[in-house]
Design a protein around this nucleic acid. Sequence first.
DNA 1: ACGCGACTTGTCCTCGTGGACAATGGCGCC
DNA 2: GGCGCCATTGTCCACGAGGACAAGTCGCGT
Lengths: 209, 209
Amino acid sequence: MSTPQPLLILTQDDLLAERWQALSSSPIRALDIHGLETWRKAGHRLVVIDLGSRLGGALPLWTHQAWRENATGLAILATSSRPDDDEGLAVLNAGASGYCHSHAPVDNLRQALDVIDSGELWVGRALLSRLLRLVDSRLPRAGLADWARPLTEREREVAHHAAVGESNVAIAGALGITERTVKAHLKAIFEKLEVADRLQLALRVHGVR
Amino acid sequence: MSTPQPLLILTQDDLLAERWQALSSSPIRALDIHGLETWRKAGHRLVVIDLGSRLGGALPLWTHQAWRENATGLAILATSSRPDDDEGLAVLNAGASGYCHSHAPVDNLRQALDVIDSGELWVGRALLSRLLRLVDSRLPRAGLADWARPLTEREREVAHHAAVGESNVAIAGALGITERTVKAHLKAIFEKLEVADRLQLALRVHGVR
DNA sequence: ACGCGACTTGTCCTCGTGGACAATGGCGCC
DNA sequence: GGCGCCATTGTCCACGAGGACAAGTCGCGT
């Protein structure tokens, strides 16, 4: 928490502007898409953008192409006075490096800025643990997937190919065997996994349901 | 990067131990599950644990109940000399506050420790952006799903039914229309979504790829 | 009124899929 | 040496899927 980099702050909230004086000696400007461009051209990279309380329910400006382009190369910390997990995901996916509460303690902001300045991403505890929980339940487990356990090695290969939509002939070609053999494997797969056809197989393999 | 808190370091790697001298004046101990307990009782909370290069392919000690209990209330930064996204998720879900490369620059470690000491979580850029991508593609979007946008209302219904494996006849029955009509809708769907068949449609609808 | 898009249905027709019945060679195990 | 599991391939067949060609109604906006 010790490296005061040139910082561009964009907000329309006067209270925030005052509050953030301590963060930067740079001018605080109104929300302006061209500001980012000139800031980058000046060789700087650190930016705080206050998204405000609400930008109309719809996805914010952030998903617009112009913003995405301007985000390139900049380390942008987006703040929101009413943080919302989905909004956070949206801005992070749109190219922001961090997302946090507008009214977080200034020390926290400073830390977040430090982190994103060093090239990392900053995601608050709440959002991050939600991400972890979400992914944990859906991620392919280490070791064998559930569906693959009853299958032989060869059957797993066939299942993989079939599950992405390849035809029997294509699978046969890929594995260097006859279409007939692919069918034989598929029959065994269907029985073992108790599915009726390759579509159900695909859903099973990809963890749907 | 300026708050030197009492820090417990657990590693079995002498090179790392030497490298991390600068981080702490506290003793560096061998990996010991009871060390955590006494450390916490002493009123401290900051810990670095080196997971080593590999703990045998299986999930590490981290998933064991004893570790989980000991993690409570402590801010643990787990490091690995061969970082692996799945391992990272495992330790984070097991209660660690951070996960990074064992041989990361000491300044980075210091920053990570700063962050977790302030109650946040530390996840490296690579793992974090993978999380974001994963979640972004699977999360129920507000409003219409991406694939559904070009479709008419009726086509969406048909697509839903087809995507879970129902036959044309079944869909027809469910919607109270003829099989022929279902086919007509499906044809339109395939064209609009640029997919070849219902399996590809199912994958698209369920957010695979 | 006219045009257009959405929804609907019909008839052929081709082809991939999956089931049925059958068989051969390799490999590990009792 | 048998027994069982796995991988392999063959033929025949019934059915669903999807494309081609065609066409009817309904509602909506110019």
